[in-house]
Design a protein around this nucleic acid. Structure first.
Lengths: 353, 353
DNA sequence: CTGAAAGCGCTTACAG
DNA sequence: CTGAAAGCGCTTACAG
């Protein structure tokens, strides 16, 4: 079924058929109806290839992330690149920006200027949610789509959030401790000095879950800087004085120094250590059992779907089915860690030629 | 950069440029070289949209699975449909066939006839690997691509296998028991009467892992039919006489009757039950803790990537980077099960309009 | 309101 | 060996 065939049957020109297809105003109502009927009856579906050839639709999408931890964002970037690759033949241009984690104002500058530079949509991992919220609102209200990834800004007006449910990810950590520690156990919690919403939510979820398990008790909470500096030294000191923890919950990005401190003190039995994310260093420590489990959040898919969902909105005005698109919470232990290190299937299609 | 621009610069016709692009024989070597150089220098990339419009490339792909367990294959089908949707505008037609699990010869019939019916590639989940192996070889040797999903046929000549590493999935189950059961523990293993390669491999991996953990001991092995019939009754009888298992490893599809038998006997402390796959019934039993964990194998992605990898091969003659594309082994417990029930991100893009 | 025409970037018989 | 031309299915100024 082509527009020409439809036109011929109806004794009109294919231009007119095309006009009703594209909702152009100037078509006589009766003609429009006649065409609409024929379209339906003959079950016409437009040839998107021809359409995009002639329309030369071009969508420019910007993805903005911050710089640390780089191993995590590298996985997100793989996802972005795979989506870019998928869509390259459909006139989609994707540019990836990495801003300095210590200069959150760089992100503000980017989202202010990018729309004027010809971009049609932005996916951003907010470095400083506070700073960005009102600008994101302004963009969204002007009809410019913004997808927020990885760090939720609940109050922002956005196309959708793609990332994890941090409360649930704290709950999951709590459940894992409850399974790994059947007996009465004291737990040390490592968290941030700063008030960072996502990390606070992890702790909230963790406490909630622990309240279900009478045998688990948070005995102590230690706070650290965002960059995880000083974790090793502090733990060496703390655990020398107070070695008797059965579990350590690492809610910030500090699994490696935590495991290393425990290792250095040669505590026996070694406490169960559970935290988040995965890189080469964490992988090794899962393998030698100094870390029991780590929780991952589909970094590849965060990047991949951010681009895909933006493109679909731009191209077809389809809104995501929910404004909160939560990714999976992935339980990674020694025996399945390799799959999360190099996501075989996920990254395969990016490898062209 | 278009072929016309290249042609103009070189003072030749775009037809000739196109001929070298497509490796047509009749081009004077010098001309060919001149064009090749220009292409490289100007960094030409063909407009795939225009190309596919004129070439009217059409690829017909068949996906063949068997009928049980239907909840598992429904997830695979979601993946197939998402890929189909992705590729619809590129002239790809995907048909999905479900054969009766009790009539493996239906699969043989299909792979014999489909190539003549205009299909260009097949993805198949072998119901009876033995029966299919030689026909798959014949097809592959004649240049017809076959992707095997879910059930490995190591000896077959195939484009690739997409599915899990069953040995590793047994190892992972073993590791989970070792974490959930820190003390000396006796384990009951449920497996098949029939010799089914994948299930045997699970047991092999499981034994291998348990040999690393002195506290874990396989005290008994029980064998059942493929359909899992009689599991409930047998366990009621067995566990009444011998209640003292700390763990039950369910290597066949029988998590639900296993959990229900344990529940009915009201064993305390309840044994740790670990098995495979996820459906509504298993989900409920994870939630009420009668099942401790289940291992999943990316069913959505098995379907999705089977189609994508076949299409890429057909379209661009790109071979998968490995002939064994192992999917992830996913650890699913109560707190992350919902993500694996309805894969939010994965299925989102299939929802058009 | 509508038809005829040009054109998107590419490929491939058809002549020569 | 190569150019000129037709055509893939569609859209959109341009006339009328």
């Amino acid at each position: 079924m082509t527009t020409s065939e439809i036109a011929e049957r109806l004794g009109i020109s294919r231009g007119t058929v095309s006009r009703v297809l594209n909702n152009h105003p100037n078509v006589k109502p009766e003609t429009r109806q006649k065409v609409l009927d024929a379209l339906k009856e003959l079950n016409y579906t437009p040839n998107e290839t021809a359409r995009s050839l002639v329309m030369k639709k071009e969508f420019r999408i910007a993805v903005i992330v911050f710089s640390k931890p780089s191993f995590f964002w590298a996985q997100v970037e793989n996802g972005v690149n795979t989506a870019k690759n998928d869509l390259a033949s459909q006139g989609v241009i994707v540019d990836y920006f990495v801003t300095d984690i210590l200069k959150p104002e760089e992100q503000l500058e980017l989202i202010r200027t990018l729309p004027q530079k010809g971009y049609h949509g932005i996916a951003i991992a907010p470095n400083d949610p506070q700073m960005l919220a009102s600008e994101i609102d302004r963009l969204s209200n002007s009809g410019f789509p913004v997808v927020i990834i990885n760090v939720e800004i609940p109050t922002a007006n956005q196309l959708c959030y793609i990332g994890c449910d941090y409360i649930q990810s704290g709950i999951l950590a709590g459940e894992l401790f409850s399974r790994f520690l059947p007996g009465p156990s004291d737990i040390l919690v490592l968290t941030l000095k700063d008030s960072v919403h996502s990390i606070e939510q992890r702790i909230t979820g963790f406490r909630k879950e622990l309240s279900q398990h009478e045998n688990l008790n948070i005995k102590r909470i230690e706070r650290f800087n965002r960059d995880g500096s000083g974790v090793y030294e502090s733990l060496i000191k703390l655990l020398s004085d107070m070695p008797d923890f059965q579990g350590i919950y690492v809610s910030l990005a500090a699994l490696v120094p935590t495991a290393d401190a425990v290792q250095a003190l040669n505590l026996t039995p070694a406490p169960v250590i559970i935290g988040y994310d995965l890189n080469e260093d964490i992988f090794m420590r899962l393998k030698n059992s100094s870390i029991s489990a780590t929780i991952c959040h589909e970094p590849f898919n965060q990047g991949y779907f951010a681009v895909k969902i933006l493109h679909r909105f731009l191209d077809k005005k389809i809104y995501p089915s929910s404004s909160l698109m939560y990714n999976k919470l992935e339980v990674v232990v020694a025996s399945n860690a390799k799959y999360y290190m190099n996501e075989t299937l996920q990254t395969e299609l990016f490898r062209e030629i």
